[in-house]
Amino acid sequence: MTFGAAWNDIVRGFKQHELWLQLGWQDIKQRYRRSVLGPLWITIATGVMALALGLLYSVLFKIPIAEFLPHVTVGLIIWNFISGCIKEGSDIFIDNEGLIKQLPSALSVHVYRLVWKQALFLAHNLVIWVILMMIFPRPLGWDVLLIIPAMFLLVINGVWVVMFFGIIATRYRDVSPLLEAGTQLLFYVTPIVWMTSTLQSQSAEIGNRARLAELNPLYHYLEIVRAPMVGADLPAYHWWIVLAFTFVGLGLALLAMKQWRFRVSYWV
């Protein structure tokens, strides 16, 4: 078991794209089987949640709805992708026990399958953002093109999150419920239904405490995607923090693949 063998599994799994693309699409079709609206329920559910939270908290924080609703909506869209990778990723190998034992494919195929499915959910939900930009138009400029590398980084991080936590949670089954509880907690401490700028303007003491949000890495992941989408300023340090976590995460995933890849089929 070497890093070369682990890397070969990752590459071989990516090359089997026809398999995981089809499996990921099949997952969505199976989920909404016999449904009239089908995958549109993904967009409807996210849109209703964003509208409810946006209206409520815009009143509580006394923020104009035209400013706050896009902030909440884009935050929820990105959060759904992140939380989906974390929570479903922890069970990815357990849920695919039959395929792992019977299908002669790379282990990473199941990782790409889940990330692809979450990416499709994300693409569906981006329709809400387009509608919001038509209702509340704002000058986006060329900075909107930063969405492309930001989304790319988001997907890459989704891969290592699913791969790493999937292996760990397969070995230690208590990790999955722990991750689910932790993800729920992270939702409240991540600026999705609240804004750091609002807290910073309240008072000096609260403003300084608001900076603690920057200790949360998910805040930076949200910002590199959300800021270009809502026309906000994006300091460069957000990118550097995300890149650092990306490299560290990929290293952890590669290490996990090296150490335990061959044991997953026995653990499931």
Rank of each mutant, 00 (worst) to 15 (best):
58 S>L: 03
58 S>G: 10
59 V>S: 08
59 V>H: 05
59 V>M: 06
60 L>W: 07
61 F>N: 02
61 F>T: 04
64 P>F: 00
65 I>T: 08
65 I>P: 01
66 A>Y: 00
66 A>M: 04
67 E>F: 03
70 P>H: 00
70 P>D: 09
72 V>D: 11
73 T>F: 00
73 T>W: 00
74 V>C: 00
76 L>F: 10
79 W>D: 03
81 F>Q: 05
81 F>H: 08
82 I>S: 07
83 S>Q: 11
85 C>H: 07
85 C>S: 11
86 I>R: 05
87 K>D: 14
88 E>Y: 02
88 E>N: 14
90 S>F: 07
91 D>T: 14
92 I>K: 08
96 N>P: 12
96 N>S: 11
96 N>E: 12
97 E>P: 14
97 E>F: 04
97 E>T: 10
98 G>F: 00
98 G>Y: 01
102 Q>L: 04
102 Q>S: 15
103 L>M: 13
104 P>A: 11
105 S>W: 00
106 A>S: 15
106 A>F: 06
107 L>E: 12
108 S>F: 13
108 S>L: 08
109 V>K: 01
109 V>C: 14
110 H>A: 07
113 R>V: 12
113 R>I: 09
114 L>D: 10
114 L>N: 04
114 L>H: 06
115 V>S: 12
119 A>S: 10
120 L>Q: 10
